[in-house]
């Protein structure tokens, strides 16, 4: 777990998504969504890391999922949101493929959903430079990297009735 903690810290410091460099990664525009919005294979070509996924889930500059979703297992994270459904049982109610599709672009699973798309780079109206309120300079990276998506999915898969 040591390594993961360091990796998480590094990501925290960076604060923004970095393009995936290794060959196995699927670019945001190449993701294949099934009929119901599921995505069959890992976006990074690597397995996800649940501990890092928990950090992505709870950190504002990354997934910030906790602003909309409550997760009973995250006992030390205050003020969990309720705009989206509670995810305490996601590891039982959803498959890995479904979860990957929902995190990458939830609009493919739920028409017009309020949930943002985390692995997408275009089609935005007045995209900004993070939370500065200023215009984005050039193309935006996706909010999460392919690996961060996999990490969050791995974290969600650990969420089961205890």
């Amino acid at each position: 777990m040591r390594l993961t903690a360091i990796a998480a810290a590094v990501t925290l410091v960076a604060g923004v998504a970095h393009a995936e460099s290794h060959s196995g990664a699927v670019a945001p525009e190449d993701v294949q969504y099934g009929e119901t919005g599921a995505v069959a294979t890992s976006l990074s070509g690597m397995p996800g890391d649940a501990a890092n996924g928990q950090v992505v889930f709870s950190t504002k500059s990354m997934g910030n999922c906790v602003s909309c979703h409550a997760v009973a297992q995250l006992t030390d994270v205050p003020f969990q949101g309720e705009v989206g459904p509670e995810l305490t049982w996601s590891g039982e109610s959803r498959s890995e493929e479904e979860l990957r599709g929902i995190v990458a672009n939830a609009k493919m699973s739920f028409d017009g959903t309020v949930m943002p798309a985390f692995y997408k780079t275009n089609g935005y109206i007045r995209p900004g430079n993070g939370y500065t309120g200023k215009a984005a300079e050039g193309d935006l990276p996706p909010i999460l990297t392919a690996q961060q998506v996999e990490d969050v999915v791995a974290f969600l898969l650990t969420l089961k009735e205890q």
Binding site: V66, C68, G81, V83, V114, Y124, I125, G128, A136
Partner: peptide, 25 residues
């Protein structure tokens, strides 16, 4: 009703569809 920004959220997404709900704190 326009969904602005990289989060693609409109005023209505928060203040019409979700008033009464908590978004974080």
């Amino acid at each position: 009703y326009t969904r602005y920004g990289q989060l693609e959220l409109s005023c209505a997404n928060c203040h019409e569809e979700n008033f009464g709900n908590y978004i974080r704190a």
